[in-house]
């Protein structure tokens, strides 16, 4: 039946390792930061986060190794997680809480349905989220979807 607009479809675990590819990388050991620029793609499990520039903050994990604490993507960002996709100007992903906060003309689409607003706060682990600002939800009613042969 109708695909879900939320993020609960695909299970996600924010403690999985994070791979980041980019055209260029500048590292500053002093304050544990790294700046990826140029077609940056951040991958974690099924989730993909892309952006023009991604600042990564590292920190001590419980077991003492350095790991990624926070990612700050900007300059036009997209977030894919299974069937859902969200676009915005900026996004901050805090791995500890599994929460992504995307701001700036955010558009969340899922098949024919789409939601647009100013600020989207999504928890990848629980699949819940909140869109704020003058939110517009556009959705195909059941029969209209059927009519367009977009059968599930």
């Amino acid at each position: 039946q109708g695909a879900n607009i939320g993020f609960g479809g695909a299970e996600h675990d924010s403690s999985l390792p994070v791979e980041i590819t980019a055209d260029q990388l500048d590292v500053s050991q002093a304050d544990g930061r790294a700046k990826f620029t140029g077609n940056v793609v951040v991958g974690q499990g099924e989730m993909r986060l892309t952006g023009a520039v991604v600042d990564v903050e590292y920190g001590e994990s419980a077991t003492g190794e350095t790991e990624v604490k926070r990612l700050h993507a900007s300059g036009g960002v997209t977030l894919f997680n299974g069937a859902e996709a969200a676009e915005g100007q900026e996004a901050v992903y805090t791995l500890e809480t599994g929460e992504v906060v995307m701001t700036g003309d955010v558009v969340l689409t899922q098949g024919e349905n789409a939601m647009a607003g100013e600020k989207l706060t999504v928890n990848l682990d629980t699949g819940t989220g909140v869109m704020e600002g003058r939110v517009r939800v556009v959705f195909q009613s059941q029969d209209a979807q059927g009519a367009q042969g977009d059968g599930q």
């Binding site: 607009i5 939320g6 704020e132």
Partner: peptide, 9 residues
């Protein structure tokens, strides 16, 4: 003004 996405979609 506000749209929440709940766990059950």
């Amino acid at each position: 003004d506000r749209v929440e996405i709940t766990a059950d979609g």
